[in-house]
Design a protein around this nucleic acid. Sequence first.
DNA 1: ACCTGAACACCGTTCAAGT
DNA 2: ACCTGAACACCGTTCAAGT
Lengths: 231, 231
Amino acid sequence: MSKSARKPNKPVKTRPGRTGLSRPRLIDEALELLQESGLAGLSTRRLAERLKVQSPALYWHVRGKDELLQLVADAICAQMVLPAKARSPRERLEAIAHEYRRVLTAYRDAPRLFAEQPPVGPNRIKLYDAAVGALLDEGFPAADAIAMATFYRHYLLGMIIEEVRDQQPGHIEAPFSAFALGVELTRLGKAASEFPNLAGAADLLTHMSPKKLFAMGLKVLLDGLQAHLNP
Amino acid sequence: MSKSARKPNKPVKTRPGRTGLSRPRLIDEALELLQESGLAGLSTRRLAERLKVQSPALYWHVRGKDELLQLVADAICAQMVLPAKARSPRERLEAIAHEYRRVLTAYRDAPRLFAEQPPVGPNRIKLYDAAVGALLDEGFPAADAIAMATFYRHYLLGMIIEEVRDQQPGHIEAPFSAFALGVELTRLGKAASEFPNLAGAADLLTHMSPKKLFAMGLKVLLDGLQAHLNP
DNA sequence: ACCTGAACACCGTTCAAGT
DNA sequence: ACCTGAACACCGTTCAAGT
C-alpha cells in the first residue's frame, strides 16, 4: 500500500521537467505524512517537499487541500473489509462497526479526518451503502434506513474520536479520560461540589477498556434500532 | 451577552498603555467574530484587530488559541438551560438534547468547535454532570452512566454537525444531504450501480426535516439505553 | 501537459523592550 | 502588570512563465 510506485534507482526519465507525479503518488505520500506528522503536519508544502516538487505542482493533480484530504480518507476507507451479504443484518452492522474502528484507529488522526471531511468518494459511499443495505434487510423502510445509517456513522465516529483522543500522549485535556477528568475537576477547584455526579467518575473510568466501551455503545445503538423496528 | 463591557464614549483611561483588555472581553469579541466569520475566520490576529490591540497582547490574558476556543465553547454552553431535577430522567435527557441542539445551531460553526475542542470548562462539565445525573436516576450503575453520557454526547454532536453542514450555502459536498448525495452519485458516474441501496436515497432525504431526524435519532438512542437497563 | 518561481495574503507564537 | 514591535517559522493558493 504505502510502498507502491517509488522511483527505482535508475530514475525513469520520461521527459525533462516531468517528475512522475500522479494522483496515486500524492495520496500514498500523504498517507505516510499523515502517519508521521498527524493531521496538523499534513500540509501541502510539506507534502510537496517529500515529493521533491514545488508546492504549486500539486495543484495540477488536485483541486486543493480539501480534495486531497478527501482522497486520503477514501484511501483509508478502501482498507475496510465489508461483511458478506449472507450474514444476518445485525451481524453485518456489528462487523462494519468493528472494521471502522480497526482501520480508523490504525491511522493517525484518521477519526478527526473523517469527521472534518464530508463522506465523499467511492469507498466511503460504498461503506454507507453497505450500512443502508443491512438496515433495509433488517426491515426498515427506505427513508428510515438512510436516517439510521447516518446516526450509525456519527455514533461510531464520535466514539472512536474520543477513544483515540485519550491515547495521544500529552493530550490529557479531554475530561472524559479518567485522568483528565480528575485534572479538570481539580482545576475547577472548589466549585467541584457543583458536579456531584462526577465525584467518583474519574476512578470508574480507569477500569473501562476502550474496546469494551465501544462494544457497549454499539450494543446500545443496535438495541435502539431494534426497538424502533418493533415498537 | 454580546453587548457587554464596550468602551463608552469617553474612554476610561485607567493608565497609559492600558487598553481595558480582559478575559471576558476577549471571549465576547471572539463570539461575535465567530458569528461573522466562522471558525476559520476566528484567528488571533483578526481578534486582536477587532480589539484594537497587537495580537501578542492576547497572550497575556490567554495561554493560546486553544484555551481561547475552549473559553468560547464554554461561554456558548453557558446559555443552555438545564432541566429541573424534578422531571423524569428520560424527560431530562430529552430536554438536554434539545437545548444542546438549540444553542449549537444558534452559533455559527459551534458544532465543529465543540467536536474539536475537548469538553473543558465549568459549563461543559456541568452539562456532562447533568446528563450523568439523569442516567443515575434512571437506574444505571455509576460506571455505565458515565459511559452512556459519553455516547449521548457524541451522538448529539454528530447529528447536529451533519444537520448544520447541510445549511451552509455552497457546502453541498456532504452526500448525506439529499442534493449532495445525488451530486456525488452522478460524480462517481457509471460506478453508481455499485451502490444499489442508495438509488432512491437522494429523493427520500428531501422529505425529512432536520428536526424530525434529530428527534428520531434521539428516540433511538434513548430506547437503546432503556434496553440496556432492562435486558 | 506538467511543473517552476515568485508572489500574495495570511497564520500562531515568542520574546525583548517599553510604560 | 500589561502591552508593543519586530521577528520566526510557517500556511494555502494564484498565476505568469518555462519546457
